[in-house]
């Protein structure tokens, strides 16, 4: 990758680490979601270990969606987006790199935290490894799909909730294949690789559709 891409990546990463510690807040939210679910379904460890992968995935989905509303908004508020549109760099790639930096700052900590939270849910080591692996492959897709929502709601003062509503239907396939490949690793109704490879495919599709749609939405929001 050329210099500008690396510079953009570094800048976004620096900003997300320095401003408000978004990585930490995301992980804390993840922890909060995983903590409240046993209060809802009861402390039965067998049940928890059975639905554990699903809980972790839903927690990761919610944490990702909640952190996305500022992805482009901060840059729009201070005029940075205007300059990026004129910088002579393909906006689709700019979006892709911004998403990547955002994922490293907020998604990767969730993946790292997942095995720890798996302990609370009585997950087997194999299940823990499977969930972590699926999260590692699947959370970038959530960020990339969420970027569409973030770009669409960039002009709205309080777009966070609307973003979640718009993005959740598009994120359903990722959730389905993420949870089923984690489940497949534990008690195999199907081989692990089948849903896992589909999950990888979904991430790759999201890496194409997400930046293209977000870039289009950002261009329309500029005027």
């Amino acid at each position: 990758m050329s210099t500008w891409a690396i510079v953009l990546f570094q800048r976004d990463l620096r900003l997300s680490v320095r401003v408000g510690g978004s990585a930490l807040v995301g992980v804390l939210f993840f922890l909060a979601v995983v903590t409240v679910i046993p209060f809802g379904v009861g402390p039965d460890l067998n049940l928890l270990s059975r639905i554990g992968p699903a809980i972790l995935w839903i927690g990761a989905l919610l944490a990702t969606l909640l952190g996305l509303d500022r992805l482009f908004q901060a840059d729009r508020d201070d005029g940075t987006i205007d300059l990026m549109l004129m910088a002579g760099r393909p906006l689709e790639l700019v979006v892709l790199i911004k998403c990547l930096a955002h994922w490293v700052a907020t998604g990767l900590p969730l993946v790292v935290a997942a095995p720890l939270l798996g302990v609370f849910l009585n997950l087997e080591p194999a299940a823990m490894a499977a969930v972590t692996l699926t999260l590692l492959v699947g959370t970038p897709a959530l960020t990339l799909i969420g970027a569409i929502g973030a770009a669409l709601t960039v002009t709205l003062r309080r777009g966070g909730l609307l973003l979640a509503v718009l993005v959740v239907p598009l994120a359903i396939p990722v959730l389905i294949f993420g949870v089923s490949s984690a489940d497949a690793a534990i008690h195999d109704p199907v081989p692990f690789l089948t849903p896992f490879l589909i999950l990888c495919a979904l991430s790759l599709i999201a890496a194409v559709i997400g930046p293209i749609a977000s870039a289009a939405a950002l261009r329309f929001a500029a005027d």
């Binding site: 800048r11 620096r14 900003l15 320095r18 401003v19 201070d78 005029g79 940075t80 205007d82 300059l83």
Partner: peptide, 11 residues
């Protein structure tokens, strides 16, 4: 060079 400075306070 518009009204907005595009300056990030954290950097």
């Amino acid at each position: 060079f518009g009204h907005q400075d595009a300056v990030k306070p954290a950097l």
